[in-house]
Computed example of a mutant assay.
Amino acid sequence: MKVAVMGAGAVGCYYGGMLARAGVPVTLIGRAQHVDAVCARGLLLEIGADRFTVPMDATTEADGVAGADIVLFSVKSGDTEAVGRQIAPHLRPDVTVLNLQNGVDNADRLRPVVNRTVVPVAVYVATAMVGPGHVVHHGRGELVIGPCEAGERIVAQFGAAGIPTRVSETPLDALWGKLIVNCAYNALSALTQLPYGRLLPMQGVREVMADVVAECVAVAKASGVNVAPDVLAQVLGLAKTMPGQRSSTAQDLAAGKPTEIDHLNGLVIRRGAALGIPTPANRVLHTMVKVAEATR
């Protein structure tokens, strides 16, 4: 199984590195600084106390997806359609595109652009790029993918590479579960630049997260999504499993990059407005991140 990773950031590099380390042919497609580093000495992959150098192909060009059986699509949500148009001419007709992005609507936005099989995936992993071609794993790593023809093969191949993967008939429920977690943590981690383990004990944080989660749950249920009854407990428990992780929004804000906040809290605000559901806690966090983006 040949794999291409479109978007060689922290998530794409981690999963691409795990697959390549298990012997799967992988091509990373990303920014020049990461591509140059990977081409020169391989991908540096840190997992706990272990450090691996993983050789693999890398390119800055969209045609790096050519010939791939599986494409891991992990670009920023704001770039979905534009990058989709870039890779579309180079995709095999029978390719399976696994959508590893934040948010709940990216697969639906990408599918008509590439006119190929695009499978929604809920990603549960804590990673960070700490240098060119250098990714650090902070915790977890499982994937929940929607149903697809290649599902069994993907589950087997990814499992053999140390990536726990399962197929769900209700991927939208899983994506909303992940979105609720992101809405609770991402903006607060970004605005404070704190990792989850230090963020959660601070005064008032649990209460703010509870307000955010309640709004998200109301919007999700009104949208026909099944939400776990203990979702708040799951959200608050995340800090114990990923104490050293800063959110992707925090990493983007610190690097002066555009964040994905419009596709996280911003999506809940838009859906809530359409459904007549107030979302003031999400609106405050969204506004504060947008202000921080503008001032940086």
Rank of each mutant, 00 (worst) to 15 (best):
R271D: 04
A150T: 09
V26T: 03
S247D: 12
T259H: 07
M56D: 00
H90N: 01
P171V: 09
P201H: 01
A222L: 01
L232W: 08
L43S: 05
P229I: 01
A156K: 10
R92P: 00
P25A: 01
L100Q: 11
A233K: 14
T165C: 15
D108Q: 15
V130Y: 07
I154T: 05
M1C: 03
Q251C: 03
Y124K: 12
G237H: 06
P120W: 09
C216Q: 03
V97P: 06
K76I: 02
M242P: 11
A62G: 00
R92M: 00
A20F: 02
L199P: 01
G103L: 10
A250G: 00
Y196I: 01
D69M: 04
G159R: 12
G17C: 13
Q193T: 07
M288A: 12
E61K: 03
V54A: 07
V213Q: 04
R109Q: 08
G266R: 07
V144W: 05
M209N: 05
V38T: 08
V5M: 04
V135H: 06
I145H: 01
G162C: 07
V227G: 06
R283V: 02
G256Q: 03
L267Y: 14
I261E: 09
R140G: 08
M288F: 14
V291I: 14
A22Y: 01
K2Y: 10
A233D: 15
V291A: 14
T59P: 00
Q33S: 15
G42I: 04
G256W: 06
L191A: 02
T27K: 05
G48R: 10
P229N: 09
V104P: 04
R85M: 01
G23R: 03
V291R: 13
E207L: 07
M209E: 06
S189C: 07
N186P: 09
N99Q: 14
I277V: 13
S189G: 08
A88I: 00
T27M: 00
A122I: 02
D230P: 11
H137R: 08
V121H: 02
R85P: 00
V104S: 08
V136S: 11
L275S: 03
G17S: 08
T127A: 12
K2M: 12
L267N: 12
R116Y: 02
A174Y: 04
T60L: 05
T249V: 11
L264W: 02
R111E: 11
H286Q: 15
A218K: 13
L188W: 05
A220C: 10
R31I: 08
I29C: 02
E142C: 15
T295K: 14
V119L: 11
D69A: 10
V130G: 07
G16A: 02
M288G: 06
H90V: 00
V217T: 02
G7R: 13
L267G: 08
E207Y: 10
I47L: 13
A218D: 09
Q203D: 11
P93Q: 03
G42L: 01
V75K: 08
V217A: 09
V205P: 02
V123C: 11
L100Y: 14
N106G: 11
R116V: 05
R21P: 06
